[in-house]
């Protein structure tokens, strides 16, 4: 690990003036923020404000038109970047879980470390079993995704992502596709991760959750960050009318 990475003040993820268009539609119009090690940030905002696009740009699932995104000081959208190196560091959990339906829960967790990192299968199995326990799914190791509830699938997806030992976790509206009664079990899992010091970037509609776990909240609308602040002040003292309108509708 280099000196830079040891320095906790050096941001793990750093965005500067990021612009992104789909055809004529500009969805990100100059987004900048930094995320330090161990920080939990929540991105909130109305649908279509570019939140998911933003988070997908961080692990290069989408490219950007201009600006800069750096993970550990390395430019993500450098064409020479080794995407494998990036994806070892950045874990991602999706709205629709996207588990591999033909693999059991345990196999889902084991696949990437074995195939991508070429780690020893038996060691990976042990770690995967620990991770399954960590997300409270012991006994479900051999279940296929189709046999699990949405909340259980999403927890497998979190374990699958953690198996790669990432430095940052991205959560893209991970509770939006869940039944209300299973939302909580997923949020508890994420909260535990955050408390253990995992750096997390979440796009979420769960305001109560954001208030509880986030170190910093960003409100985006129409491709720009309208307002941001720590939860203690964000929910009570936000001044921009768009933020207030959004909060009044959702809280």
């Amino acid at each position: 690990m280099s000196e830079n990475e040891m320095n906790s003040e050096q941001p793990i993820v750093s965005l500067k003036d990021v612009h992104k268009s789909f055809g004529d539609l500009e969805v990100l119009k100059g987004i900048s923020f930094d995320v330090k090690k161990g920080e939990v940030i929540c991105i909130i905002g109305p649908s279509g404000s570019g939140k998911s696009t933003l988070i997908r740009c961080i692990n290069a699932l989408n490219d950007i038109n201009s600006g800069s995104i750096k993970v550990h000081g390395r430019e993500v959208h450098d064409p020479k970047l080794d995407k494998l190196e990036l994806r070892k560091k950045v874990g991602m959990v999706f709205q629709q879980f996207n588990l591999f339906p033909h693999k059991t829960a345990l196999e889902n967790v084991m696949m990437a470390p074995v195939l991508v990192l070429k780690q020893n299968k038996e060691e990976v199995r042990k770690r995967a079993e620990d991770l399954i326990r960590k997300v409270r799914l012991q006994g479900k190791e051999d279940s296929y995704p189709g046999e699990l509830s949405g909340g259980q699938q999403q927890r497998v997806a979190i374990a699958r992502s953690l198996a790669m030992n990432p430095d940052v976790m991205l959560f893209d509206e991970v509770t939006s596709a869940l039944d209300p009664e299973t939302v909580k079990e997923v949020l508890v899992t994420i909260k535990e991760l955050a408390q253990e010091g995992m750096t997390c970037i979440l796009v979420t509609h769960e305001m109560g959750f954001a208030k509880e776990v986030a170190d910093h909240i960003y409100f985006t609308d129409n491709g720009v960050i309208v307002e941001h602040g720590p939860p203690s002040t964000f929910f009570t003292e936000s001044s921009d009318p768009r933020t207030r309108e959004f909060l009044s509708q959702i809280l």
Binding site: L84, M111, A112
Partner: peptide, 19 residues
């Protein structure tokens, strides 16, 4: 989205197809 999930776990294009 299934392909994106494997991509974001670091699978190469060939691995995504094969596995």
């Amino acid at each position: 989205s299934t392909k994106e999930a494997s991509e974001s776990l670091g699978f190469s294009r060939l691995q995504t197809y094969r596995y």
